[in-house]
């Protein structure tokens, strides 16, 4: 329950933080260079606005849908639920990884929630906060090129020494044209491929490219999956800081 909140806050808002800030790191090895290039391609936008249809599918159950509007600017993320009806009007403001506020319309009040948990899903989503927030890898991971085709790199990504990471290993397929990931396989310490994420249908505005669909399959939960389908996207539009204020939550 509390987990729900904190996950909700971080997750729903960062739900689309697929391209905020970049992190620079020295990359000597060919694999690290590819990883650095990918980080750069993921984090070019200054502001973004997304609308997403989120579809959760658990084995043996019907689909569950969520609707999200997300605004991103720097570290700040503002998310509003548009569906389901019960959640409509719920807003989440993330000012920083530890400073979050939620406005629940039925309660008419803003609640501050500080959370320290980031490895769980939210509202049945197979994406964890870590999965959605991790858009810059080379600060904590190192990569080597496992194989290569004329159009793709296949990176094997492992944590740098001394780094604590959500996964023990990732295998990332990076398209050479845009230097963006099309598939990420996540592995646990035992070497099991626990999750597989696919990013498809990249479209670009200038040099900023984002996928039109993301899908995360949890291989340990009988194939439970979450699909995020982008229905609207605006990039680098002017966004006032007032949009990312507590007062905006209650409006």
């Amino acid at each position: 329950m509390t987990r729900s909140f904190r996950s909700g806050l971080l997750l729903a808002a960062s739900a689309l933080a697929l391209m905020t800030h970049g992190t620079s790191a020295r990359a000597d090895a060919p694999g690290d260079k590819v990883l650095t290039a990918m980080d750069g391609a993921l984090n070019r936008a200054k502001t973004q606005y997304f609308e997403y249809d989120v579809i959760n599918q658990e084995p043996g159950k019907g689909e569950r849908k969520l609707g999200l509007q997300v605004r991103l600017k720097g570290d700040k993320r503002f998310t509003e639920f548009t569906a389901p009806a019960d959640m409509k009007g719920t807003k989440i403001l993330i000012m920083s990884p530890t400073q979050m506020y939620v406005f629940l319309p039925a309660f008419g009040k803003v609640r501050r929630i500080a959370s320290s948990v980031s490895d769980q899903g939210f509202m049945g989503m197979t994406f964890s906060q870590d999965d959605l927030a991790s858009q810059a890898y080379n600060a904590t991971y190192e990569a080597k090129i496992g194989s290569e085709t004329p159009t793709e790199y296949h990176l094997v990504v492992t944590p740098k020494a001394g780094q604590t990471t959500p996964y023990a290993k990732m295998e990332i397929t990076v398209g050479k044209e845009k230097m963006l990931p099309s598939e990420i396989k996540y592995f646990n310490a035992a070497g099991t491929n626990v999750k597989t994420e696919t990013r498809t249908g990249y479209t670009c505005e200038g040099n900023v490219c984002v996928p039109s669909e993301l899908k995360m399959v949890d291989n340990t939960k009988g194939g439970a999956s979450t699909k995020m389908i982008r229905t609207k996207w605006k990039v680098n539009e002017e966004m006032s800081d007032d949009l990312f204020s507590k007062r905006a939550l209650g409006e």
């Binding site: 329950m1 729900s4 909140f5 909700g8 959760n56 658990e58 569950r64 389901p84 019960d86 959640m87 719920t90 629940l104 319309p105 039925a106 309660f107 899903g121 509202m123 049945g124 989503m125």
Partner: peptide, 18 residues
């Protein structure tokens, strides 16, 4: 237990998938 159905439904939203 919250006082209104709207509040209860909203809280249930956060329990989805648990």
């Amino acid at each position: 237990v919250p006082d209104t159905a709207a509040q209860a439904k909203l809280l249930f939203g956060f329990l989805e998938g648990k």
